[in-house]
Design a binder for these strands. Sequence first.
DNA 1: GAAATAGTGTCTTTAAGACAGTATGTG
DNA 2: CACATACTGTCTTAAAGACACTATTTC
Lengths: 243, 243
Amino acid sequence: MTTRKPATSSTPAEPERFVVAVDVVALTLVDDQLHTLLIRRPAAPFKGAWMLPGGVVLGKESVMRAAERVLREKAGLAGVYLEQLYTYSEPARDPRDRSVSIAHLALVDSGRLQSLKPHEGETTVARLEVPWEGEAGGAVGAVDASGTPLTLAFDHADMLGLAVKRVRGKLDYTPVGYQLLPEAFTLSQLQRVHEAILGRPLNKDSFRRRMLASGELEPTGESQSEVDHRPAALYRFTARSAV
Amino acid sequence: MTTRKPATSSTPAEPERFVVAVDVVALTLVDDQLHTLLIRRPAAPFKGAWMLPGGVVLGKESVMRAAERVLREKAGLAGVYLEQLYTYSEPARDPRDRSVSIAHLALVDSGRLQSLKPHEGETTVARLEVPWEGEAGGAVGAVDASGTPLTLAFDHADMLGLAVKRVRGKLDYTPVGYQLLPEAFTLSQLQRVHEAILGRPLNKDSFRRRMLASGELEPTGESQSEVDHRPAALYRFTARSAV
DNA sequence: GAAATAGTGTCTTTAAGACAGTATGTG
DNA sequence: CACATACTGTCTTAAAGACACTATTTC
């Protein structure tokens, strides 16, 4: 741009400017396990490694809009739940240029990520492996279908870890399943969603009581069909608070 | 971040650059009520209104370092608890220039903010008025000693609101009092801290049991003196997890 | 009827709230 | 001694976990 000569002490006359980017951790459930969308890097740095879908923020948009645009352009996804996670800003995080990136969490219905088109570049929906329990936090890795760890670019393993930590925390007070399940679902399905996110089994009786008492669910009146056992009652979410 | 690849549609070859700033909500307790540090704006925009201590991020530092520097330069505070809150990026948030600001939460011991020097420009420690309960969230205002509302610059009322919401949430699982109380304190003092943050009274019996059972406290063996009633036992925090 | 999952009833355990009563300092 | 706050003991209540039992579908 122009001259940004550092002034006397610490306050430059003209502030330095940064590349501002967004990255999106798009979580979904495949086979009752947490997965996320990754894109193979076509060029250096980290050529061949996997990265989260991301891109630079444009001059006229907020970072939330930029994250929505990235999801639309890189994965063909629109209207999904999206929230800001954390801003990564270590000076060395990108070897090319001084950049700041705002990581976002997206929750995507299981079916929608499955059917994404290849788009530009190689994409995959990789299973997460969380090496910690509860909300301890820390980096999280991704593995391919055969269980082989994928190399993650930049600080994206930290972003995955923060996304998992956040979604575990949300479970206590928000109907997260609303974003990850179809309109109608059974209590067992909902329990499996919670167990997949928390990474531990839940007590069935207590889970049922808690969910039914929460007021967040209402029976559809229908029940399952085409299952080889007793069909379960179907429910939907009442409070559409999370949108 | 990600690839600066030219890409197909709207991404320019050379990404636009932003001014990246930090703002700090430095919370403390005065007379068992939540207060925060504010600085009077000496110039337009919002001349005369009150703003959070803040400043631009320099090229060689992370946003966390920038927030530490701001607290040191504007309030003479060092070594206080600091965490990132949220990144504000609405294109219209600053009428002068396209900017992004990362809001931070700081927790400051009651005594330290009281004795701050005027430094450059007018500063005050203003009481917060929270117009919502629990963790509902929303903008929060500040009032002066006589209860008159202070005009807040930019989106700083939103930042105050988010800080209050965050610190209320932290109370459930972290020993927040560690940052706001002296080394040794009584259970009543700790309860008043929790009540001030939550904005509602707490059950005394349950609070005592919960705190003593948490394993986060240990008796110092000492007890209060110079009080006109039965002196209470003094405790300190064991798990210095929050630093 | 066997297999599989759905759903109910009830006992135990745990933590919160309520509240009465005792303890220990100051004036 | 009056007063104020600190602290203890116990009863009640609500929710979670455990577990036995019944229900309803397909094969």
